[in-house]
Computed example of a mutant assay.
Amino acid sequence: MNNFKFSENIESYLVSAKDIFISKIASGIKTRDELFTSLYNTLLLPGYFGFNWDALFDCLRDFHWIDEYLVIIVHEDLPTLSEEELRIYLHLLADACLDWKIDEEHKLEIVFPESVRCKVEHLLSAD
């Protein structure tokens, strides 16, 4: 789970700092469309974003529209998607994080509340 972090204090990640772009994914997301819309709005995704898993992965591997080096996606809670869609989302995030190399112009980190650590780890290891 490279670059996945779990925190008791999610608010500490929401403090702006130099060279950090923060995307806050609010709690209460219940559908894939709500998740895509939240990511579109908070990551300032380009207008050509296709609102599907492939398009999300492509955008999480580009960030040419973001000036800051570190991009952090902070989840207030785990989206309440179906287990299959949640597994897809978590694997997509993990793969996107792993795909960024040290010498590239961005780094991606993902933050979840500590309270969902077991569920995230279970879903990522259940395959």
Rank of each mutant, 00 (worst) to 15 (best):
N3Q: 09
F4I: 01
F4Y: 15
K5F: 07
S7H: 03
E8F: 14
N9P: 01
I10F: 00
E11R: 00
S12M: 07
S12T: 02
Y13V: 03
Y13S: 04
L14P: 01
L14W: 03
S16Q: 09
A17T: 14
A17M: 13
K18N: 03
D19P: 11
D19W: 12
I20M: 11
F21Y: 14
F21Q: 01
F21M: 03
I22L: 09
I22K: 11
K24V: 00
I25K: 02
I25E: 05
A26W: 00
A26I: 05
S27I: 02
G28N: 05
G28P: 00
G28E: 02
K30C: 07
K30N: 13
T31L: 07
T31I: 03
T37W: 04
S38Y: 02
L39Q: 02
Y40H: 13
N41Y: 05
N41A: 08
L45N: 03
P46S: 11
P46E: 13
P46K: 15
G47C: 08
Y48G: 04
F49M: 06
F51P: 04
F51R: 10
N52C: 06
N52S: 06
W53R: 01
D54S: 13
L56V: 07
F57P: 00
D58M: 04
D58P: 02
C59D: 13
R61W: 10
D62I: 04
D62N: 15
D62Q: 10
F63G: 09
F63M: 14
H64T: 12
W65F: 10
W65R: 09
I66Q: 05
D67F: 08
Y69M: 02
Y69P: 04
Y69D: 04
Y69W: 05
V71K: 11
H75Y: 14
H75S: 04
E76S: 10
E76P: 00
E76G: 01
D77G: 02
L78F: 12
L78G: 10
P79F: 04
P79Y: 07
L81P: 01
S82A: 12
S82R: 10
E84W: 03
R87Q: 14
Y89E: 11
Y89F: 15
Y89K: 08
Y89W: 15
Y89A: 05
L90G: 11
H91G: 08
L92Q: 09
L92A: 10
L93V: 05
L93P: 00
D95Q: 08
A96S: 15
L98K: 15
W100R: 13
W100L: 09
D103Q: 09
D103R: 07
E104D: 14
E104P: 01
E104L: 05
H106V: 11
H106R: 14
H106A: 12
L108F: 10
E109F: 12
I110F: 01
F112Y: 15
E114H: 09
S115D: 13
C118Q: 14
K119I: 14
K119P: 08
K119C: 13
E121N: 12
E121R: 06
H122F: 15
H122D: 13
L123G: 00
L124S: 07
L124I: 11
S125Y: 06
S125P: 06
S125M: 09
A126Y: 03
A126V: 02
A126F: 02
A126H: 05
D127G: 08
D127Q: 04
